[in-house]
């Protein structure tokens, strides 16, 4: 036992330079990442609202009552709101993740050929991704306007596809009103990554497939898609995380940063934010975010395990 300990100490001493280098980061991580998370978890067991805010961590300890309110209590308004938020977030995350990947893939394939002014076209395609997300929210808030919005003007006045001007920012249409701008904002990133991936695939694979007389469809599923595996693994992973935590676009679109997104537009983040900073229920807000974190860790783990397993199979 003793020699091993000595060896460890020796190694620490030898690499002390590295410790000096990570020290500031370590401190920042401890005080501004770890400590808030621990406090957040603890807060989820406290009755913390605007009356008990002054006591903070000494606020009444109520055990799992916050979780009961959030998950089980049939009379709690928070639970009803949360159910809608969870449903919307699931729909939103799945459609946005798949949508960005699909559009990004199609455009990346188109851009992977040589044609006139290709760098310019690629750069122009990146434009939506450069627009800040809060601007995206405000902009699409104007585009979805019932009377003057571009969508209604195009569909009803110019193309005459629909006989009336529907309301996009209220009712069940809202879910589309938040999905489409998010896909619009994020697909260029997928395209960029997939394009970089496409350029690493050796041409010989396609030449060999051509000799075998494979159809383009088959070539895509047998060569392109498997070769892009590391790219879409990362894209789906980060898509799941970031879209579940999506906030800016949705909150800015409804009432231009002041409104409630409605029962079909409310996401987890907007729900928790409203509970915490507008209704001042910090306890239930913290409880909801703890639950969200647990679900997220589970999802990421499942995705990693699936990926590892299928990697081993290959």
């Amino acid at each position: 036992m003793k020699p091993k300990k000595k060896k460890l100490w020796h190694r620490i001493k030898q690499d002390r330079f590295a410790y000096y280098f990570i020290l500031p980061t370590l401190l920042a991580m401890l005080f501004l990442h770890l400590s808030p998370i621990v406090q957040g978890v603890y807060m989820s067991f406290l009755k913390l609202n605007q009356f008990t805010l002054q006591q903070y961590l000494l606020a009444p300890f109520i055990g799992a009552d916050n979780f009961y309110k959030v998950l089980i209590d049939p009379h709690s308004p928070i639970r009803i709101g949360l159910f809608e938020a969870v449903r919307n977030t699931v729909i939103y995350t799945i459609i946005v993740t798949i949508g960005t990947l699909a559009i990004g893939m199609v455009v990346a394939l188109m851009l992977n050929r040589k044609f006139f002014a290709r760098p310019l076209v690629r750069t122009l395609f990146l434009f939506p991704w450069i627009v800040p997300t809060y601007v995206t929210g405000l902009l699409w808030g104007i585009i979805w306007l019932k009377q003057g919005g571009l969508v209604n003007v195009m569909l009803a006045d110019w193309l005459k596809i629909i006989p009336f001007k529907p309301s996009w920012l209220s009712g069940p249409n809202t879910i589309w009103a938040i999905i489409i701008p998010t896909i619009w904002r994020y697909w260029p990133l997928s395209m960029l990554m997939l394009l970089a991936g496409l350029q690493t695939i050796p041409d010989e694979l396609y030449e060999a497939a051509d000799i075998d007389g494979a159809s383009p469809w088959r070539k895509f599923w047998m060569i392109t898609w498997p070769m892009l595996r590391p790219v879409w693994f990362i894209l789906i992973l980060f898509g799941l995380i970031y879209n579940t935590y999506s906030f800016n676009i949705v909150i800015m679109m409804f009432g231009f940063g002041a409104g409630y997104p409605g029962e079909w537009g409310d996401l987890m983040m907007t729900n928790i934010f409203r509970n915490s900073f507008q209704l001042w229920n910090f306890g239930t807000g913290a409880a909801t975010s703890v639950l969200l974190l647990i679900v997220m860790v589970a999802i990421v783990n499942v995705w990693f395990t699936y990926f590892k397993k299928s990697e081993d199979l290959r």
Binding site: I37, I241, M269
Partner: peptide, 19 residues
């Protein structure tokens, strides 16, 4: 840290700042 929702930091940080 990339997996932790931003709001989970925000609630304690807000109260920490005020306190």
């Amino acid at each position: 840290t990339q997996m932790v929702p931003m709001i989970m930091y925000l609630i304690p940080l807000y109260i920490m700042f005020v306190r």
